[in-house]
Write a protein that binds this DNA or RNA. Structure first.
Lengths: 257, 257
DNA sequence: ATGGCTGTTGCATGTTGTGCAACGTGCCTG
DNA sequence: CAGGCACGTTGCACAACATGCAACAGCCAT
C-alpha cells in the first residue's frame, strides 16, 4: 500500500470533521508541515480540498461532482443481474427487477428459472402498479405528497377479487409495506400468481429498485412462497450493499477496532 | 506536487465515468499495471473505491459520505435552508442556493414547491455559469482581476438565442448585476425558464452565496416573476443577517414577511 | 519595533514508489 | 480436452520521489 497516498487520503476524513489549518493537519498525520503542505496542495489541485479565506482547509466541491457523476453512471441492473440469476437458480422461480420513474413502475430485468436469459421482450413494460409487490415497495418510499398525488391519480382496475380497490386502500397498504420493509402480491393481478418482494436501497437509504419472486399457485402455495422471503430480502440487501459501495466482507481477517 | 498522490487522485474522475478494470486504469494513467494496482488498493483501503463482483473498480461509499459531510460543513446552507423552504412555500416555485468555488458555480441546495425534499441528485451539478442568475451574482462579486480571468477562460455555449454570447457581453452583464444587487436569467439556458436571484453576503459584505427562484413561462411570465424580486431580496437579506451573526430576531421561526 | 506564530521554499538524504518479468488463474478457442 | 490468451497478482532491484530539516517570509500581538 502506498504510504504517500495513504497519508494524503487520511486528510480527507480529518477535514470532514471540520476545517483545519496546516499545523493541525501535519500534527494529526504525524508528518512534517512541509510534507502536509505538499499533500494538501495536491489534493487542492484535484479540487478535493478547498482553501477558505482564513487559509484553513476544508473539503472541496469536486467531491460533490464526483459523487454525483458516479451516482448517475450507476446501473442497478448491471449490479443486480448476477444476484438475480443466483436467486433464480436457487429457488427456481421467476425473478423480477423494477424501478419507479415518473409515475410508472417498470420492469428492467427478469430471470426465469428455466431459461436464465434476460427477456428484453417483457422488460420496459409498465407494471400493474396498484397491485404488484415491487410497485408497492417503490411507491411506499416516495415522499408523502408525491405518494398521495400518484395514488390518487391512478386507476384501480379490478384484475381479480383481491386487487387493490381504491386509493385509500392502496395508501393503507403502502403504509404497511413501508413499515415492514417487504411486500407481497397474493393473487391481486392474476388469481393464480403470488409474489414476494424486497427493496434495494442506495447509499442514502432511499429505495432505488425493487425485486420480487413470483410463482403460480400450482407450483407452490402462497405460504410456501413466503418461506422464501428471508432469501429474497438477503439478496436485495446484498445488491443494496454492492450498489451503495459498502463492502460487506472484503478481508475477513481485518476488522476496524 | 506529489506525483504518487496526483496519479492516485486522477483515478477518481476516471472511475466517475463508469466502472473500469485494472488494465483500463493503468492505460489511462500511463503507468504499469502493478502501479495502478497498488494505487487502487490504497484507494480501496480508504473506501474511496469499491471493487464490484466482476472485479471492476468503481467509486466507493466513503466518497459519498465525505461529500455529504463536506456539504454539511457549509454552514451557509444550514442557515439558509429554512428560509429557502419558507420562500418555496410562499411563492410555489423552485428555489436554488449556489456558491462559487474555484472557477465553478454549484448548487448546494434546492427546494421544489411540490416536494420540499432536498434533492441531492441535482446538487453538485455544475451550473451553466455564463447564463445562470446565481452565477452572475457570484462572479460579479469577485475581485476584478479574477473576474476577468474567469470570464475569459469560459466557454459561451449558445443554449438559446438569449444566452450570453461572449466574455465582453458577460463582463458587461456582471457590471450591471454588481451595480443593481440582483440578477435575472430570462430564457438564457432554457427558452421557457426564467429566474430571479439575490446575493447572500457575509459580515464583511462579500457575496458568499446566491439564491434564486425559477419558474417556467407557462406558469408565470417573466414580468410576474419579477414581482417576486422584493421577496427574494428580503429572504436573501434575512439569510445574510443570520449568517453574519447580525440576527435581529433570535427566533428563526419568525421572519419578516 | 520585535518576538512569536504561521505558511512557504530549496535541498541533501534514503525511504518508497516504480517498472519489469514471472507466476497463477479463469475463460474462450482451436 | 488441450492449448492459448488475457487478466490480476507477486517479488525484486533500482533510482526516482517524497521526506524532514533548516532557513526565509509575512502577519499579528505584544
Amino acid at each position: 500500500m502506498s504510504q504517500t497516498v495513504d497519508r494524503a487520503l487520511s486528510i480527507l476524513p480529518l477535514l470532514a470533521e471540520g476545517p483545519a489549518d496546516l499545523g493541525q493537519v501535519a500534527d494529526r498525520l504525524g508528518v512534517h508541515k512541509s510534507t502536509a503542505l505538499r499533500l494538501l496542495r495536491t489534493l487542492h489541485d484535484h479540487g478535493l480540498v478547498y482553501r477558505q479565506s482564513d487559509q484553513r482547509y476544508r473539503l472541496g466541491a469536486r467531491l460533490f461532482a464526483l459523487a454525483q457523476e458516479a451516482m448517475e453512471n450507476l446501473d442497478v441492473r448491471e449490479i443486480a443481474h448476477p444476484h438475480l440469476v443466483r436467486l433464480g437458480e436457487a429457488c427456481g422461480h421467476t425473478v423480477h427487477l423494477a424501478v419507479y420513474e415518473e409515475g410508472e413502475v417498470l420492469y428492467i430485468d427478469k430471470v426465469d428459472s428455466r431459461y436464465p436469459v434476460r427477456m428484453y421482450s417483457r422488460i420496459g413494460k409498465p407494471v400493474a402498479i396498484t397491485v404488484a409487490a415491487v410497485a408497492k415497495l417503490l411507491l411506499a418510499d416516495l415522499p408523502e405528497p408525491e405518494r398521495r398525488a400518484v395514488a390518487e391519480s391512478l386507476d384501480y382496475p379490478l384484475y381479480t377479487a383481491r386487487s387493490t380497490p381504491d386509493a385509500a386502500a392502496f395508501l393503507k397498504e403502502l403504509a404497511t409495506v413501508r413499515e415492514q420493509g417487504w411486500a407481497t402480491d397474493l393473487g391481486g393481478f392474476e388469481e393464480s400468481i403470488n409474489c414476494v418482494a424486497a427493496p434495494i436501497r442506495g447509499a442514502d437509504g432511499r429505495v432505488v429498485a425493487a425485486m420480487s419472486v413470483s410463482a403460480p399457485n400450482v407450483v407452490v402455495t402462497a405460504d410456501e412462497l413466503l418461506t422464501l422471503l428471508p432469501l429474497v430480502r438477503r439478496t436485495a440487501d446484498a445488491i443494496s450493499d454492492e450498489y451503495s459501495g459498502r463492502t460487506p466482507v472484503t478481508d475477513p481477517a481485518k476488522d476496524t477496532a
